[in-house]
Nucleic acid binder design. Structure first.
Length: 363
DNA sequence: AAGACGTGGTA
DNA sequence: TTACCAAGTCT
């Protein structure tokens, strides 16, 4: 093993090669304009399991809408979900607001700077804690994400399964030795940037790599065998029925999803799992029991949507229906809204397709 | 420990 | 088309 641990000369060279490379090759990103802890925090939450290119427009909009931590703390749930609409993993923004409120009430609006305190904030796990501490506060704390595990598994030739939660701790232990105490921010970001731009999952650019000489996998020709990662299971398909229901005022019925679980707190058209979409009686009964809505009988589906989540596939048949009564027993989770009002509410991507295709008649 | 939790891009 | 991914966290 080329680098492993005790050789201080090699460690110093590794650090300086990585940090120098980072300053010369880092991308200009909106969250790199300054080190404001709140701005760094928001970016780290958005970046979880999400590509840089996807995040950029959301980040710009989010910071325009909630420029200071206090603005986010005071926003409504519908506002924050709308700002997150389409980004996925919606509990991230709900947790972020909970955490930001905690910072306002408990830390006088100042993001705490110890791992202990910051880790107790909702949605801040080991990676995000390390990222904020190092990037915003220049603390020598590891920030182990998928990039870092891929890069270090190659450099240090570590073949533990990076899909396993405990493997992260192995890399954190190594990092406490390896991290550059002079510039932990550039070191951590350099590791991630290297993973994103050079030490990629497939066909890594070893010939361009600033730490090639320190890389055990490169010297042994193992860069394509590492990291080791077990595969995940495939998504399970479900038959879903969705209903586009109008009343006599030309309004649509929408419902708010439960506060926990899949797509928590988002709005949707009445939507539920069915054994079969051709069992009309089952559909009518579900509408009556679930929504208190009697409808004029509906015909064949007017739209089919396949939507793939990480662990589920929704095969949605969309039906059109007219409510027999103008008002329904409207709990807080049911609402009649005009076409124009629809855009105020955050919908899952699968139901955005109903709005664009069936309501607006776009391609 | 393993599964829940989204979405859009790429080979 | 299927599979895997992309700056993880919570239960």
């Amino acid at each position: 093993m080329i680098l492993h641990c005790t050789d201080q000369i090699n460690i110093n060279e590794f650090r300086s090669n990585l940090v120098t490379w980072f300053y010369q090759n880092q991308r200009e990103l909106p969250w790199r304009e300054n080190k404001d802890p709140y701005r760094v925090w928001v970016s780290e939450i958005m970046l979880q399991q999400t590509r840089v290119d996807t995040v950029i427009p959301y980040y710009l909009n989010f910071m325009r809408q909630f420029p200071e931590l206090e603005n986010l703390a005071e926003a409504s749930e519908d506002e924050i979900l709308k700002a997150w609409e389409g980004l996925g993993y919606y509990s991230r923004v709900r947790n972020l607001q909970t955490a930001v409120r905690e910072v306002v009430s408990h830390y006088n609006g100042v993001v705490p700077d110890t791992r202990e305190e910051i880790s107790n904030l909702k949605g801040v796990g080991p990676y995000t804690a390390g990222a904020i501490l190092s990037i915003a506060y220049d603390k020598a704390e590891p920030a182990v994400d998928g990039n870092v595990m891929r890069v270090l598994s190659r450099v240090l030739v570590i073949d533990e399964d990076i899909a396993k939660v405990k493997t992260r701790k192995t890399f954190e232990r190594e990092l406490y030795e390896l991290i550059d105490p002079e510039d932990p921010s550039a070191f951590n970001q350099g590791l991630m940037e290297l993973g994103a731009l050079v030490c990629t999952p497939t066909s890594p650019g070893c010939l361009l790599c600033p730490v090639q000489s320190h890389c055990g996998a490169y010297h042994q020709g193992l860069q394509n065998q590492l990291p080791v990662k077990t595969k995940k299971k495939k998504a399970i398909p479900k038959n879903m029925a969705a209903f586009l229901i109008k009343n006599n005022k030309n309004e649509y019925l929408i419902e708010k999803r439960p506060e926990t679980g899949l797509l928590a707190g988002l709005w949707q058209f009445p939507n539920f799992e069915v054994s079969s979409v051709s069992a009309k009686e089952e559909l009518e009964e579900a509408l009556m029991n679930g929504y208190g809505i009697e409808t004029y009988t509906h015909g064949e589906p007017i739209q089919y949507i396949e939507h793939v989540f990480s662990h589920i596939i929704w095969n949605i048949s969309v039906f059109e229906a007219k409510a027999k009564q103008a008002e329904s027993a409207s709990g807080t989770s049911l609402k009649w809204v005009s076409q124009g009002e629809l855009e105020q509410y955050a919908f899952p991507v699968s139901h955005q397709k109903i709005i664009t295709h069936t309501i607006r008649g776009e391609a």
